[in-house]
């Protein structure tokens, strides 16, 4: 069995219970926020308030996915800002395009 000498020595660590619990907690939050969005979709009338609530809850979900699942919250600051600051362009595009959209019918 000399060929086994090249097999790597693997040390398997026990599950990190604390971390796994935290991940399931985040999953629970995501499911709960989605459930709240469903309730809002069928109880509130269409309008600014409804849209604002949807946008707010979506940002909450996005923050949990990017921060915890993608682990960005635990990275070094310079990496966090390298990802977040360029998103200003998305905000800019959003404001510019929606402004155009609301203006077009009045032309």
């Amino acid at each position: 069995m000399s060929h086994h000498s090249h097999e790597p020595q693997i040390t398997v660590l026990p599950p990190n219970k604390e971390k796994i619990k935290q991940l399931w907690r985040v999953a629970g939050i995501l499911a709960a926020v989605t459930a709240v969005e469903f309730v809002i979709a069928f109880t509130l009338a269409h309008g600014v308030l409804k849209t604002a609530l949807f946008v707010g809850l979506t940002i909450v979900k996005a923050a949990y996915i990017v921060g915890e699942f993608m682990h960005l919250r635990h990275e070094v600051k310079v990496l966090i800002w390298s990802i977040l600051i360029p998103l200003i362009f998305v905000v800019w595009m959003l404001v510019a395009f929606l402004w155009e959209g609301f203006t077009l019918p009045r032309i």
Binding site: V90, M93, L94, F97, L98, E100, G101, F102, L104, P105
Partner: peptide, 9 residues
């Protein structure tokens, strides 16, 4: 966002 533009217009 383009969807938003077309929808709002």
């Amino acid at each position: 966002i383009t969807y938003g533009l077309v929808r709002t217009s």
